[in-house]
């Protein structure tokens, strides 16, 4: 009798003990993360702290062809190549994390220590600069409009009462909100869904950066980029606020690549021509 009643109790006690250990271990891990995040230990050279040892983690939103997209099971693109140069300089390898763009551009991903940097075809804006730091500009872009060929839509004013697809958290969304008050803006999570909606006619037009739209229409006969808006945007690589060690490294890699011609080679690989400037 006594034995039988003691067994469950013993088992329970063991379980409780295990639980306690697990809780303490979890709490301990939390502390470790916090330490690395705020800049203590890490095995990277030249005083650059990385969130993951031996990896340069890049937060980006896929697909954003030709800047970052999947090809043959690998994530490739213009941004990916540039970040690879930085990784090589640091003697580590790049790890790409695919994450919704609104988390990238709000600074949440960088400041929470999810990634070291964000190379995501991202325009440098004042609002974004308040939340994280940008590298020197590495790409010129403007907003552009993609429509069905022959639709006759070549400006925002013609979209009155029509559906205009925008991507969540992008400068295109912001531009459309300010300049297309009469259009019905439909917000999509990523470029892939946005372009599918354009292609299947669920929306009348889509707005996004010129680079990706030209890339998309280049092998489509029934869609065209009908307008560029000359917003004069420039892409920058984002890093956590105050991470100057990494920022300096990125800037020096970018300027070396530009003077050595390596930047031009990468540019030509993804855009099929040399940069115009």
């Amino acid at each position: 009798m006594i034995d039988r009643s003691r067994k469950p109790a013993a088992r329970l006690a063991r379980l409780v003990g295990l639980l306690a250990v697990a809780v303490l271990a979890a709490a301990g891990c939390g502390d470790d993360d916090a330490d690395t995040g705020s800049g203590g230990t890490s095995g990277a050279p030249a005083g650059v702290d990385l969130v993951k040892d031996g990896k340069l983690t890049n937060c980006t939103g896929l697909p954003y062809e030709p800047f970052e997209f999947e090809q043959g099971g690998k994530i490739v693109g213009f941004d990916v190549d540039l970040v690879d140069l930085v990784a090589k300089e640091l003697g580590v390898t790049q790890e790409v994390i695919d994450t919704p763009f609104d988390g990238i551009q709000s600074g949440a991903d960088l400041n929470s220590g999810k990634c070291d940097l964000a190379a995501a075809g991202m325009t440098i804006t004042d609002t974004r600069k308040q939340n994280f730091d940008f590298s020197d500009p590495y790409f010129d872009a403007t907003q552009a409009l993609v429509v069905k060929t022959g639709s006759g839509i070549s400006d925002l004013a013609q979209l009155k009462g029509k559906k205009l697809a925008v991507q969540n958290g992008t400068t295109g969304q912001e531009y459309a909100q300010q300049n297309a008050p009469d259009a019905e803006l439909v917000v999509f999570e990523d470029l892939g869904l946005l372009l599918t909606a354009v292609e299947t006619g669920q929306v009348d037009a889509g707005i996004n950066d010129n680079g990706v739209l030209y890339d998309w229409v280049k092998d489509k006969t029934d869609f065209e980029v009908s307008k560029e808006f000359n917003t004069g945007e420039q892409y920058g690589i984002g890093v956590r606020k105050g991470n100057t060690a990494l920022l300096d490294k990125i800037n020096s890699v970018l300027s070396t690549a530009k003077s050595s011609g390596e930047y031009d080679t990468i540019y030509e690989r993804w855009f099929g021509k040399k940069p115009s400037s």
């Binding site: 939340n131 969540n168 958290g169 019905e184 999509f188 999570e189």
Partner: peptide
């Protein structure tokens, strides 16, 4: 449903919250 794309009048709670998160940081 937010993955289907939505106009402002079509936002449901999650997408509405995320849009506000974007605007208000």
């Amino acid at each position: 449903v937010l993955f289907l794309g939505a106009t402002q009048g079509q936002y449901e709670l999650t997408q509405f919250g995320r849009q506000e998160l974007n605007n208000a940081k």
